[in-house]
Write a protein that binds this DNA or RNA. Structure first.
Lengths: 218, 218
DNA sequence: CGGCGAAATTGATCCAGATCAATGCGACGG
DNA sequence: CCGTCGCATTGATCTGGATCAATTTCGCCG
Protein backbone atom coordinates (compact mmCIF):
# COMPACT_ATOMS: atom_id res chain seq x y z
CA UNK A 1 0.00 0.00 0.00
CA UNK A 2 1.11 3.54 -0.68
CA UNK A 3 2.46 5.17 2.44
CA UNK A 4 0.21 7.80 4.06
CA UNK A 5 2.86 10.45 3.76
CA UNK A 6 1.17 13.39 5.40
CA UNK A 7 0.12 11.94 8.71
CA UNK A 8 2.19 8.88 9.22
CA UNK A 9 5.75 10.10 8.87
CA UNK A 10 6.26 10.11 12.63
CA UNK A 11 4.25 7.05 13.65
CA UNK A 12 5.62 3.87 15.14
CA UNK A 13 5.40 0.60 13.19
CA UNK A 14 2.52 -0.79 15.20
CA UNK A 15 0.57 2.44 14.86
CA UNK A 16 1.19 2.37 11.13
CA UNK A 17 0.04 -1.22 10.94
CA UNK A 18 -3.14 -0.38 12.85
CA UNK A 19 -3.80 2.56 10.55
CA UNK A 20 -3.33 0.47 7.43
CA UNK A 21 -5.62 -2.24 8.75
CA UNK A 22 -8.43 0.34 8.99
CA UNK A 23 -7.84 2.02 5.63
CA UNK A 24 -9.98 1.02 2.66
CA UNK A 25 -8.07 1.61 -0.58
CA UNK A 26 -10.45 3.24 -3.08
CA UNK A 27 -10.28 4.40 -6.66
CA UNK A 28 -12.19 7.17 -8.42
CA UNK A 29 -12.56 7.79 -12.16
CA UNK A 30 -12.03 11.24 -13.64
CA UNK A 31 -14.84 13.57 -12.57
CA UNK A 32 -16.22 11.13 -10.01
CA UNK A 33 -17.49 12.54 -6.71
CA UNK A 34 -15.77 11.53 -3.45
CA UNK A 35 -18.42 13.30 -1.34
CA UNK A 36 -20.92 16.13 -1.51
CA UNK A 37 -21.39 19.25 0.60
CA UNK A 38 -24.24 18.84 3.09
CA UNK A 39 -24.35 15.02 2.88
CA UNK A 40 -23.74 12.95 5.99
CA UNK A 41 -20.00 12.60 6.56
CA UNK A 42 -19.39 8.84 6.52
CA UNK A 43 -15.68 8.76 5.67
CA UNK A 44 -12.38 10.56 5.88
CA UNK A 45 -10.01 10.22 2.91
CA UNK A 46 -6.29 10.33 2.42
CA UNK A 47 -5.39 10.96 -1.22
CA UNK A 48 -2.64 8.64 -2.45
CA UNK A 49 -2.57 9.52 -6.16
CA UNK A 50 -4.15 12.18 -8.37
CA UNK A 51 -5.69 15.57 -7.68
CA UNK A 52 -9.04 16.36 -6.02
CA UNK A 53 -11.07 19.55 -6.43
CA UNK A 54 -12.71 20.81 -3.19
CA UNK A 55 -15.52 23.32 -3.59
CA UNK A 56 -18.59 24.97 -2.16
CA UNK A 57 -21.69 26.00 -4.13
CA UNK A 58 -24.18 28.80 -3.60
CA UNK A 59 -27.85 28.09 -4.35
CA UNK A 60 -27.63 30.13 -7.57
CA UNK A 61 -24.70 28.09 -8.88
CA UNK A 62 -21.81 30.37 -7.99
CA UNK A 63 -18.87 28.17 -7.05
CA UNK A 64 -15.84 28.68 -4.86
CA UNK A 65 -13.04 26.14 -5.07
CA UNK A 66 -11.61 26.05 -1.54
CA UNK A 67 -8.61 23.94 -2.47
CA UNK A 68 -6.98 21.25 -4.55
CA UNK A 69 -5.95 18.12 -2.66
CA UNK A 70 -2.72 16.45 -3.79
CA UNK A 71 -1.32 13.05 -2.75
CA UNK A 72 -0.84 12.95 1.01
CA UNK A 73 -3.65 15.39 1.75
CA UNK A 74 -6.48 14.57 4.14
CA UNK A 75 -10.12 15.29 3.28
CA UNK A 76 -13.26 15.53 5.35
CA UNK A 77 -11.50 16.13 8.64
CA UNK A 78 -14.14 18.57 9.89
CA UNK A 79 -16.27 15.53 10.73
CA UNK A 80 -19.37 17.22 11.93
CA UNK A 81 -22.57 15.52 10.82
CA UNK A 82 -22.22 16.76 7.27
CA UNK A 83 -19.38 17.54 4.86
CA UNK A 84 -18.69 21.26 4.60
CA UNK A 85 -17.74 21.09 0.92
CA UNK A 86 -17.86 18.78 -2.07
CA UNK A 87 -14.89 16.88 -3.49
CA UNK A 88 -14.40 15.34 -6.89
CA UNK A 89 -11.61 13.72 -8.82
CA UNK A 90 -9.62 15.66 -11.43
CA UNK A 91 -8.36 12.78 -13.53
CA UNK A 92 -7.92 9.36 -11.94
CA UNK A 93 -7.63 9.40 -8.14
CA UNK A 94 -6.60 6.81 -5.57
CA UNK A 95 -7.37 7.35 -1.89
CA UNK A 96 -7.56 5.52 1.43
CA UNK A 97 -10.96 5.78 3.06
CA UNK A 98 -11.52 5.54 6.82
CA UNK A 99 -15.07 5.11 8.11
CA UNK A 100 -16.17 7.74 10.57
CA UNK A 101 -16.32 5.17 13.33
CA UNK A 102 -12.82 3.83 12.64
CA UNK A 103 -11.53 7.38 12.42
CA UNK A 104 -12.92 8.55 15.76
CA UNK A 105 -11.89 5.35 17.52
CA UNK A 106 -8.38 5.67 16.13
CA UNK A 107 -8.12 9.30 17.16
CA UNK A 108 -9.30 8.53 20.69
CA UNK A 109 -6.86 5.65 21.04
CA UNK A 110 -3.76 7.30 19.56
CA UNK A 111 -2.97 10.81 20.88
CA UNK A 112 0.16 10.67 18.79
CA UNK A 113 -1.90 10.43 15.63
CA UNK A 114 -4.27 13.13 16.85
CA UNK A 115 -1.33 15.45 17.33
CA UNK A 116 -0.23 14.93 13.72
CA UNK A 117 -3.79 15.45 12.50
CA UNK A 118 -3.99 18.65 14.53
CA UNK A 119 -0.74 19.92 12.99
CA UNK A 120 -2.17 19.15 9.58
CA UNK A 121 -5.40 21.05 10.34
CA UNK A 122 -3.43 23.98 11.72
CA UNK A 123 -1.34 24.12 8.55
CA UNK A 124 -4.51 24.07 6.46
CA UNK A 125 -5.80 27.00 8.50
CA UNK A 126 -2.62 28.98 7.76
CA UNK A 127 -3.06 28.27 4.04
CA UNK A 128 -6.71 29.35 4.30
CA UNK A 129 -5.62 32.68 5.82
CA UNK A 130 -3.20 33.21 2.93
CA UNK A 131 -5.97 32.41 0.48
CA UNK A 132 -8.17 35.04 2.19
CA UNK A 133 -5.45 37.66 1.65
CA UNK A 134 -5.23 36.55 -1.98
CA UNK A 135 -8.99 36.64 -2.58
CA UNK A 136 -9.62 39.89 -0.75
CA UNK A 137 -6.65 42.05 -1.62
CA UNK A 138 -4.66 40.82 -4.62
CA UNK A 139 -5.03 41.68 -8.32
CA UNK A 140 -5.74 39.10 -11.04
CA UNK A 141 -2.08 38.89 -12.06
CA UNK A 142 -0.91 38.47 -8.48
CA UNK A 143 -3.54 35.77 -7.91
CA UNK A 144 -2.34 33.73 -10.87
CA UNK A 145 1.33 34.09 -9.94
CA UNK A 146 0.74 33.14 -6.30
CA UNK A 147 -1.31 30.17 -7.44
CA UNK A 148 1.44 28.91 -9.77
CA UNK A 149 4.20 29.35 -7.20
CA UNK A 150 2.04 27.70 -4.55
CA UNK A 151 1.35 24.67 -6.73
CA UNK A 152 5.02 24.43 -7.68
CA UNK A 153 6.03 24.42 -3.99
CA UNK A 154 3.44 21.79 -3.13
CA UNK A 155 4.69 19.45 -5.87
CA UNK A 156 8.25 20.13 -4.77
CA UNK A 157 7.45 19.16 -1.16
CA UNK A 158 6.00 15.90 -2.53
CA UNK A 159 9.33 15.16 -4.18
CA UNK A 160 8.44 16.39 -7.67
CA UNK A 161 10.40 19.64 -7.98
CA UNK A 162 10.22 21.08 -11.50
CA UNK A 163 10.05 24.38 -13.35
CA UNK A 164 7.03 22.92 -15.18
CA UNK A 165 3.93 23.17 -12.97
CA UNK A 166 1.29 20.54 -13.85
CA UNK A 167 -2.22 22.00 -14.03
CA UNK A 168 -4.61 19.07 -14.42
CA UNK A 169 -7.61 21.25 -13.46
CA UNK A 170 -9.58 23.33 -15.99
CA UNK A 171 -9.35 27.12 -16.37
CA UNK A 172 -12.80 27.27 -14.78
CA UNK A 173 -11.48 25.46 -11.69
CA UNK A 174 -8.59 27.92 -11.44
CA UNK A 175 -10.97 30.87 -11.90
CA UNK A 176 -13.28 29.56 -9.16
CA UNK A 177 -10.29 29.06 -6.85
CA UNK A 178 -8.98 32.60 -7.38
CA UNK A 179 -12.31 34.46 -7.45
CA UNK A 180 -11.99 35.37 -11.14
CA UNK A 181 -13.71 34.49 -14.42
CA UNK A 182 -12.36 31.99 -16.92
CA UNK A 183 -11.74 34.84 -19.41
CA UNK A 184 -9.61 36.79 -16.94
CA UNK A 185 -7.57 33.68 -16.13
CA UNK A 186 -7.01 33.01 -19.84
CA UNK A 187 -6.08 36.60 -20.66
CA UNK A 188 -3.74 36.88 -17.68
CA UNK A 189 -1.96 33.64 -18.64
CA UNK A 190 -1.59 34.96 -22.20
CA UNK A 191 -0.16 38.26 -20.95
CA UNK A 192 2.32 36.47 -18.63
CA UNK A 193 3.37 34.29 -21.56
CA UNK A 194 3.91 37.37 -23.78
CA UNK A 195 6.09 38.85 -20.94
CA UNK A 196 8.15 35.64 -21.00
CA UNK A 197 7.27 35.25 -17.32
CA UNK A 198 5.81 31.82 -18.05
CA UNK A 199 5.53 29.45 -21.00
CA UNK A 200 2.20 27.74 -21.51
CA UNK A 201 2.68 24.04 -22.27
CA UNK A 202 0.10 21.22 -22.67
CA UNK A 203 -1.19 20.26 -19.23
CA UNK A 204 0.62 22.99 -17.36
CA UNK A 205 2.88 26.02 -17.26
CA UNK A 206 6.65 26.38 -17.26
CA UNK A 207 8.05 29.00 -14.89
CA UNK A 208 10.45 31.17 -16.94
CA UNK A 209 11.06 34.12 -14.61
CA UNK A 210 10.84 32.92 -11.00
CA UNK A 211 12.56 36.09 -9.69
CA UNK A 212 9.88 38.39 -11.03
CA UNK A 213 7.15 35.98 -9.89
CA UNK A 214 8.51 35.76 -6.34
CA UNK A 215 8.80 39.54 -6.22
CA UNK A 216 5.12 39.91 -7.16
CA UNK A 217 4.03 37.25 -4.65
CA UNK A 218 6.01 38.79 -1.76
CA UNK B 1 -10.90 33.74 36.79
CA UNK B 2 -13.23 33.84 33.85
CA UNK B 3 -13.99 30.36 32.59
CA UNK B 4 -12.25 29.37 29.37
CA UNK B 5 -15.53 28.72 27.65
CA UNK B 6 -14.37 27.50 24.28
CA UNK B 7 -11.98 24.77 25.21
CA UNK B 8 -12.77 23.83 28.75
CA UNK B 9 -16.45 23.03 28.67
CA UNK B 10 -15.79 19.31 28.68
CA UNK B 11 -12.76 19.10 30.94
CA UNK B 12 -12.59 17.44 34.34
CA UNK B 13 -12.03 19.55 37.48
CA UNK B 14 -8.40 18.55 37.85
CA UNK B 15 -7.68 19.29 34.21
CA UNK B 16 -9.34 22.67 34.58
CA UNK B 17 -7.28 23.41 37.67
CA UNK B 18 -4.07 22.48 35.84
CA UNK B 19 -5.04 24.69 32.94
CA UNK B 20 -5.75 27.64 35.18
CA UNK B 21 -2.48 27.22 37.01
CA UNK B 22 -0.63 27.67 33.71
CA UNK B 23 -2.67 30.62 32.43
CA UNK B 24 -1.31 34.14 32.83
CA UNK B 25 -4.18 36.63 32.99
CA UNK B 26 -3.26 39.62 30.83
CA UNK B 27 -4.84 42.93 29.92
CA UNK B 28 -4.47 45.01 26.74
CA UNK B 29 -5.43 48.65 26.22
CA UNK B 30 -7.39 49.72 23.15
CA UNK B 31 -5.26 49.42 20.03
CA UNK B 32 -2.49 47.53 21.82
CA UNK B 33 -0.78 44.67 19.98
CA UNK B 34 -1.04 41.11 21.32
CA UNK B 35 1.46 39.79 18.76
CA UNK B 36 2.82 40.56 15.30
CA UNK B 37 2.95 38.51 12.11
CA UNK B 38 6.39 37.01 11.55
CA UNK B 39 7.58 37.46 15.14
CA UNK B 40 8.56 34.42 17.16
CA UNK B 41 5.48 32.78 18.61
CA UNK B 42 6.01 32.84 22.38
CA UNK B 43 2.44 32.54 23.62
CA UNK B 44 -1.04 31.25 22.90
CA UNK B 45 -3.96 33.41 24.06
CA UNK B 46 -7.52 32.75 25.11
CA UNK B 47 -9.61 35.92 24.93
CA UNK B 48 -11.77 36.39 28.02
CA UNK B 49 -13.21 39.87 27.36
CA UNK B 50 -13.25 42.29 24.44
CA UNK B 51 -12.65 41.91 20.70
CA UNK B 52 -9.36 41.29 18.87
CA UNK B 53 -8.60 42.12 15.23
CA UNK B 54 -6.54 39.44 13.41
CA UNK B 55 -4.87 40.54 10.18
CA UNK B 56 -2.15 40.03 7.63
CA UNK B 57 -0.26 42.77 5.80
CA UNK B 58 1.32 42.85 2.35
CA UNK B 59 4.63 44.69 1.96
CA UNK B 60 2.87 47.59 0.22
CA UNK B 61 0.42 48.09 3.10
CA UNK B 62 -2.62 46.26 1.77
CA UNK B 63 -4.33 44.60 4.70
CA UNK B 64 -6.59 41.55 5.03
CA UNK B 65 -8.41 41.07 8.31
CA UNK B 66 -8.62 37.28 8.68
CA UNK B 67 -10.96 37.36 11.65
CA UNK B 68 -12.27 39.01 14.79
CA UNK B 69 -11.69 37.08 18.01
CA UNK B 70 -14.45 37.27 20.62
CA UNK B 71 -14.37 36.06 24.23
CA UNK B 72 -13.65 32.34 24.32
CA UNK B 73 -11.61 32.33 21.12
CA UNK B 74 -8.08 30.94 20.95
CA UNK B 75 -5.28 32.82 19.18
CA UNK B 76 -1.90 31.77 17.93
CA UNK B 77 -2.69 28.07 17.73
CA UNK B 78 -0.64 27.54 14.57
CA UNK B 79 2.43 27.54 16.81
CA UNK B 80 5.09 27.23 14.22
CA UNK B 81 8.19 29.33 14.91
CA UNK B 82 6.44 32.55 13.94
CA UNK B 83 2.91 33.96 14.17
CA UNK B 84 1.08 33.79 10.85
CA UNK B 85 -0.84 37.02 11.45
CA UNK B 86 -0.92 40.04 13.75
CA UNK B 87 -3.47 40.61 16.50
CA UNK B 88 -4.47 43.79 18.27
CA UNK B 89 -7.08 44.87 20.74
CA UNK B 90 -10.25 46.66 19.58
CA UNK B 91 -11.17 48.43 22.80
CA UNK B 92 -10.04 46.96 26.13
CA UNK B 93 -9.18 43.26 26.03
CA UNK B 94 -8.56 40.67 28.71
CA UNK B 95 -6.93 37.37 27.81
CA UNK B 96 -5.22 34.34 29.35
CA UNK B 97 -1.73 33.80 28.00
CA UNK B 98 -0.02 30.38 27.89
CA UNK B 99 3.69 30.25 27.17
CA UNK B 100 4.65 28.09 24.24
CA UNK B 101 6.38 25.63 26.56
CA UNK B 102 3.40 25.33 28.90
CA UNK B 103 1.09 24.95 25.92
CA UNK B 104 3.01 22.12 24.27
CA UNK B 105 3.54 20.32 27.57
CA UNK B 106 -0.17 20.60 28.35
CA UNK B 107 -1.17 19.33 24.93
CA UNK B 108 1.19 16.36 25.20
CA UNK B 109 -0.08 15.48 28.67
CA UNK B 110 -3.81 15.86 28.07
CA UNK B 111 -5.17 14.19 24.93
CA UNK B 112 -8.61 15.26 26.08
CA UNK B 113 -7.61 18.90 25.79
CA UNK B 114 -5.90 18.29 22.46
CA UNK B 115 -9.10 16.83 21.12
CA UNK B 116 -11.02 19.97 22.11
CA UNK B 117 -8.34 22.17 20.58
CA UNK B 118 -8.48 20.12 17.38
CA UNK B 119 -12.24 20.52 17.24
CA UNK B 120 -11.77 24.25 17.66
CA UNK B 121 -9.18 24.39 14.83
CA UNK B 122 -11.43 22.32 12.60
CA UNK B 123 -14.32 24.71 13.23
CA UNK B 124 -12.06 27.66 12.39
CA UNK B 125 -11.16 25.93 9.13
CA UNK B 126 -14.84 25.58 8.23
CA UNK B 127 -15.35 29.30 8.92
CA UNK B 128 -12.30 30.07 6.77
CA UNK B 129 -13.83 28.13 3.88
CA UNK B 130 -17.04 30.11 4.21
CA UNK B 131 -15.02 33.34 4.23
CA UNK B 132 -13.31 32.22 1.00
CA UNK B 133 -16.71 31.78 -0.65
CA UNK B 134 -17.67 35.23 0.62
CA UNK B 135 -14.48 36.93 -0.57
CA UNK B 136 -14.34 35.20 -3.93
CA UNK B 137 -17.92 35.03 -5.06
CA UNK B 138 -20.26 37.35 -3.14
CA UNK B 139 -21.31 40.93 -3.93
CA UNK B 140 -20.69 43.88 -1.58
CA UNK B 141 -24.25 43.78 -0.23
CA UNK B 142 -24.10 40.03 0.37
CA UNK B 143 -20.75 40.41 2.13
CA UNK B 144 -22.12 42.98 4.56
CA UNK B 145 -25.26 40.99 5.28
CA UNK B 146 -23.35 37.73 5.86
CA UNK B 147 -20.95 39.60 8.12
CA UNK B 148 -23.76 41.06 10.23
CA UNK B 149 -25.60 37.76 10.55
CA UNK B 150 -22.35 35.98 11.37
CA UNK B 151 -21.49 38.43 14.14
CA UNK B 152 -25.03 38.22 15.50
CA UNK B 153 -24.82 34.42 15.68
CA UNK B 154 -21.43 34.50 17.36
CA UNK B 155 -22.66 36.87 20.07
CA UNK B 156 -25.77 34.72 20.46
CA UNK B 157 -23.67 31.58 21.00
CA UNK B 158 -21.80 33.49 23.70
CA UNK B 159 -25.07 34.10 25.51
CA UNK B 160 -25.70 37.62 24.20
CA UNK B 161 -28.55 37.15 21.71
CA UNK B 162 -29.86 40.48 20.42
CA UNK B 163 -31.26 42.12 17.30
CA UNK B 164 -28.64 44.84 17.85
CA UNK B 165 -25.26 43.66 16.60
CA UNK B 166 -22.35 45.43 18.36
CA UNK B 167 -19.65 46.57 15.90
CA UNK B 168 -16.73 47.81 17.99
CA UNK B 169 -14.38 47.69 14.97
CA UNK B 170 -13.98 50.56 12.49
CA UNK B 171 -15.44 50.65 8.97
CA UNK B 172 -11.89 50.18 7.72
CA UNK B 173 -11.61 46.94 9.72
CA UNK B 174 -14.89 45.70 8.24
CA UNK B 175 -13.75 46.70 4.73
CA UNK B 176 -10.46 44.85 5.16
CA UNK B 177 -12.31 41.78 6.44
CA UNK B 178 -14.72 41.70 3.49
CA UNK B 179 -12.29 42.66 0.73
CA UNK B 180 -13.96 46.04 0.10
CA UNK B 181 -13.12 49.73 0.56
CA UNK B 182 -14.36 51.85 3.45
CA UNK B 183 -16.50 53.87 1.02
CA UNK B 184 -18.28 50.79 -0.30
CA UNK B 185 -18.96 49.57 3.25
CA UNK B 186 -20.37 52.96 4.20
CA UNK B 187 -22.55 53.29 1.08
CA UNK B 188 -23.85 49.73 1.41
CA UNK B 189 -24.78 50.28 5.07
CA UNK B 190 -26.57 53.49 4.07
CA UNK B 191 -28.48 51.69 1.30
CA UNK B 192 -29.49 48.83 3.66
CA UNK B 193 -30.67 51.42 6.18
CA UNK B 194 -32.76 53.21 3.49
CA UNK B 195 -34.30 49.78 2.62
CA UNK B 196 -35.21 49.39 6.31
CA UNK B 197 -33.20 46.17 6.27
CA UNK B 198 -31.07 47.48 9.12
CA UNK B 199 -31.01 50.49 11.45
CA UNK B 200 -27.62 52.08 12.09
CA UNK B 201 -27.19 52.84 15.79
CA UNK B 202 -24.15 54.15 17.71
CA UNK B 203 -21.63 51.33 18.07
CA UNK B 204 -23.54 48.85 15.95
CA UNK B 205 -26.46 47.91 13.74
CA UNK B 206 -29.97 46.76 14.54
CA UNK B 207 -31.31 43.95 12.36
CA UNK B 208 -34.75 45.06 11.11
CA UNK B 209 -35.48 42.51 8.37
CA UNK B 210 -33.84 39.20 9.31
CA UNK B 211 -35.95 37.28 6.76
CA UNK B 212 -34.61 39.24 3.82
CA UNK B 213 -31.09 39.09 5.23
CA UNK B 214 -31.18 35.32 5.71
CA UNK B 215 -32.53 34.93 2.18
CA UNK B 216 -29.61 36.90 0.76
CA UNK B 217 -27.08 34.98 2.86
CA UNK B 218 -28.45 31.53 1.88
C1' DC C 1 -18.58 75.10 25.43
C1' DG C 2 -15.43 75.21 21.39
C1' DG C 3 -11.89 73.31 18.67
C1' DC C 4 -9.30 69.51 16.92
C1' DG C 5 -8.34 65.03 14.93
C1' DA C 6 -10.16 60.66 13.63
C1' DA C 7 -13.78 58.28 11.55
C1' DA C 8 -17.70 58.26 8.54
C1' DT C 9 -20.56 59.77 4.91
C1' DT C 10 -21.49 61.43 0.36
C1' DG C 11 -20.55 62.74 -4.45
C1' DA C 12 -18.07 62.51 -9.08
C1' DT C 13 -15.34 59.91 -11.95
C1' DC C 14 -12.53 55.96 -13.30
C1' DC C 15 -11.05 51.33 -14.35
C1' DA C 16 -9.97 46.22 -13.48
C1' DG C 17 -12.28 42.65 -14.26
C1' DA C 18 -17.04 40.93 -15.60
C1' DT C 19 -20.09 40.00 -19.23
C1' DC C 20 -21.45 39.11 -23.86
C1' DA C 21 -20.07 37.18 -28.15
C1' DA C 22 -17.42 34.93 -31.58
C1' DT C 23 -13.86 32.00 -33.08
C1' DG C 24 -9.96 28.50 -32.37
C1' DC C 25 -8.38 24.02 -31.43
C1' DG C 26 -7.46 19.48 -29.88
C1' DA C 27 -9.20 14.85 -28.69
C1' DC C 28 -12.12 11.34 -29.88
C1' DG C 29 -15.54 8.39 -32.28
C1' DG C 30 -17.35 6.91 -36.53
C1' DC D 1 -10.42 11.93 -42.73
C1' DC D 2 -14.02 14.64 -40.99
C1' DG D 3 -17.55 16.26 -37.70
C1' DT D 4 -18.51 17.52 -33.18
C1' DC D 5 -18.14 18.62 -28.49
C1' DG D 6 -15.88 20.68 -24.68
C1' DC D 7 -12.53 23.41 -23.51
C1' DA D 8 -9.69 27.74 -24.28
C1' DT D 9 -8.61 32.03 -26.38
C1' DT D 10 -9.61 36.55 -28.09
C1' DG D 11 -12.32 40.76 -28.86
C1' DA D 12 -15.89 44.46 -27.71
C1' DT D 13 -18.43 46.49 -24.29
C1' DC D 14 -20.30 47.18 -19.68
C1' DT D 15 -20.37 47.89 -14.66
C1' DG D 16 -19.66 47.18 -9.56
C1' DG D 17 -16.76 48.71 -6.77
C1' DA D 18 -12.39 51.54 -6.51
C1' DT D 19 -10.42 55.94 -6.45
C1' DC D 20 -10.29 60.79 -5.78
C1' DA D 21 -12.25 64.56 -3.32
C1' DA D 22 -14.98 67.15 -0.19
C1' DT D 23 -17.79 67.66 3.66
C1' DT D 24 -19.99 66.06 8.06
C1' DT D 25 -20.23 63.82 12.48
C1' DC D 26 -18.37 62.48 16.63
C1' DG D 27 -15.76 61.84 20.49
C1' DC D 28 -12.59 63.93 23.51
C1' DC D 29 -9.82 67.14 25.84
C1' DG D 30 -8.72 71.81 27.52
Amino acid sequence: MVRLVSVCASLSDDELALLESLAHPTHFASGETLFTQGREAHSVYNVTAGVVRLYKLLSDGRRQVVGFALPGDFLGLAMRDAYGFSADAIGEVAACAFSRGAYTALVDAKPHLLKRLHEFATHELTLAHEQMMLLGRRTAEEKLICFLLGMQQRWARLGKPSVTVPLPMTRQDIADFLGLTIETVSRTFTRLAKDKTILIVPGGVRVMNPERMSAVAA
